[in-house]
Design a binder for these strands. Sequence first.
DNA 1: ATTTTAAGTCAGCCTTGTTGACATTCCAAG
DNA 2: CTTGGAATGTCAACAAGGCTGACTTAAAAT
Lengths: 167, 167
Amino acid sequence: MSEGRSPQGETLLFLTDEQLRQGAEAMFFAYRGFTADPDRILDGLSYGRAHHRALHFIHTAPGTTVNNLLTILGVTKQSLNRVLRTLIEDGLVESQVGRTDKRERHLYLTEAGEALERELSDAQRTRMRAAFRDAGPEAVAGFRRVLEAMMDPEMRRQYHKLRGGRG
Amino acid sequence: MSEGRSPQGETLLFLTDEQLRQGAEAMFFAYRGFTADPDRILDGLSYGRAHHRALHFIHTAPGTTVNNLLTILGVTKQSLNRVLRTLIEDGLVESQVGRTDKRERHLYLTEAGEALERELSDAQRTRMRAAFRDAGPEAVAGFRRVLEAMMDPEMRRQYHKLRGGRG
DNA sequence: ATTTTAAGTCAGCCTTGTTGACATTCCAAG
DNA sequence: CTTGGAATGTCAACAAGGCTGACTTAAAAT
């Protein structure tokens, strides 16, 4: 792979293998920080990161179907079902049979579910808020632009779908 | 949590809970993309993401000790050992007894190890290169600033240590 | 001489992902 | 109305990759 001088000089320095490698390491270390705080809370309860993800996306898209959630989370229905079952048993998630299509189950957070989701997300957001504030608005815009460009097209579609109207 | 108008008006719009939530979702989806390509390669071999991480950091810091690698990866020695053992058995990693301190083992990639590391990292970098190019140099600078601010202080220290001289 | 440190190993457990097989329910097409 | 296919749920088995705890070996440090 190319090192150093390109025809454009310094303009593409951020595309050298070394810079890309640093970007990868930054993703690795930052993702650890990103999940650390909610993970600490979950450690006490009998839940894991998978439960947090389910709670997060049901909160974001209330009434979403199981299939929908599968696509977003990128796991098998068996994997999701294990998580979802405990959340329903524990009264954090409610599953309602669809009105128009009774095969579908629409998922909602109960009050208890909303409460736990808020606790986990607050922990995560506290760190992100500090990071965003430290880095500044322009850095945050760049951050999001790069992350979005890094997604699989299908996931980018899902991402935009979730934002719909919000952003 | 606060919504909308702050004393500073639009300046802090990127700190609303909604914006932070979107940032979290971006991290989630982007990390999936980030790992997808090397994961596909590893699927064929009898290795996993943990092997990739070990190869990556031994490549980055050749001669690193086991303890060092433990700190960087943030796993237990038992967990790392399982991965390291197979890599050594398969001739991808070499373990050399320390000269000054004979308790330590210094880790190096063999030629075969370098080859696999390159294959995996190339796959990962291809996506990152495209993302960086699409987003532009200023976005990349912001991307890295935010990720760095998101790390645990100890991990930020490790991150800078790895960069040492490079950046 | 004793304690501490680095590394390795064994055993067992948990979470969370995977396949494969199969039942149920229900929409929709023939 | 019957049948095919889709959406959901469930059972079983398995694997990767985390974890803890207990223990050994060798070498350094005190």
